[in-house]
């Protein structure tokens, strides 16, 4: 294949791929502000029709959705803090070649990548710990991904020269002090990457909440979203359920669905530009390691 032909084919493919990704997302956005009847009749393609903001008005006045939003913010903040702290601590210790038992501990972590106790045993452990229906059930069971630990360890190994540590030790700085006042400030890109990975992961998580939470007041947004989008529960708490006719409930239900997809994705879209740089770096690190 000659270069001009290759260029034409490859650019064509990419344009197609880009359109396939952007159009569904764009359609959700315009559908969230279009009159549902227009969508039903197939009049909405590229431009929103008979613009209405009723869906968003309902979403913002719905206590269940707003509570889900607040819960998700809380779980995301706590979860990210717990995960990133534990990962950075452990990864640094494991990056130290002079630590006795390093290989043993690393093996302990790596085994968990391939052997798994299974869903049921995990559930029973969390239950036996008395964590059901607590924040901890959402935050702790998935706190540490071994893959992230490996990435962080590789970063420390490659970016913290051992001469620096030896010099610090001569000055009387012990491991804690060296870690907190020298290693961490040197590792800002890593810390940033880890925070980003966990913000996204925690915000999007729903399965642990599904199995470990019974109390609807504790549901994160993703679980509320699942109930509305997939179980098609028109969020009743929104108010006049009994007053609405079936058709009216259907109509507002559709609007809420499109709107909720937009609302739940906005926090991540705000982060996206920041993540761009760091995710690429992280993927690079991971690839180099493997």
């Amino acid at each position: 294949m000659a270069d001009p032909a290759f260029n034409a084919v490859s650019i064509g493919l990419l344009v197609l791929a880009i359109a396939a990704i952007i159009y569904p997302l764009y359609f959700i956005v315009i559908a969230s502000i279009s009159e549902p009847a227009e969508i039903l009749n197939g009049n909405v393609w590229l431009i929103p029709q008979s613009i209405t903001f009723e869906g968003y008005a309902r979403i913002f006045s719905d206590p269940a959705i707003m509570r889900g939003f607040a819960n998700s913010v809380a779980y995301t903040v706590v979860g990210t803090f717990v995960s990133v702290t534990a990962i950075l601590f452990a990864a640094y210790a494991l990056s130290r070649r002079d630590m006795l038992g390093r290989t043993f501990f690393m093996l302990l972590f790596i085994i968990t990548m391939f052997v798994d106790g299974g869903l049921i045993a995990r559930y029973l452990v969390v239950r036996d710990l008395g964590m059901l229906d607590t924040v901890w059930a959402v935050v702790l069971p998935g706190a540490i991904g071994v893959w992230n630990l490996i990435i962080a360890r590789a970063f420390f190994e490659n970016n913290v020269p051992s001469e620096l540590r030896e010099a610090a030790q001569l000055d009387g700085a012990h491991d804690f002090r060296f870690f907190f006042s020298i290693v961490l400030p040197l590792s800002k890109p890593l810390i940033f990457l880890m925070i980003m990975i966990h913000l996204v992961g925690n915000w999007n998580a729903f399965f642990d909440a599904l199995i470990f939470l019974d109390n609807e007041d504790m549901y994160p947004l993703q679980l509320v979203l699942r109930n509305v989008l997939i179980q098609s529960e028109v969020s009743g708490a929104g108010g006049s359920g009994a007053m609405d006719s079936y058709a009216a409930a259907q109509r507002i239900g559709e609007l809420i669905k499109y709107g909720m997809i937009v609302i739940s994705s906005i926090p991540l879209l705000i982060l996206l530009p920041f993540m761009q740089k760091h995710f690429t770096k992280g993927a690079l690190l991971g690839a180099v390691k493997s």
Binding site: T85, T112, G118, V125, L140
Partner: peptide
């Protein structure tokens, strides 16, 4: 001190990985 840094992560895999195993 390095072992102290390892405690949270090791406790985590002990409780949420090895106990279920």
């Amino acid at each position: 001190q390095l072992y102290v840094l390892l405690i949270p992560a090791v406790a985590y895999i002990a409780v949420f990985k090895y106990w279920p195993m």
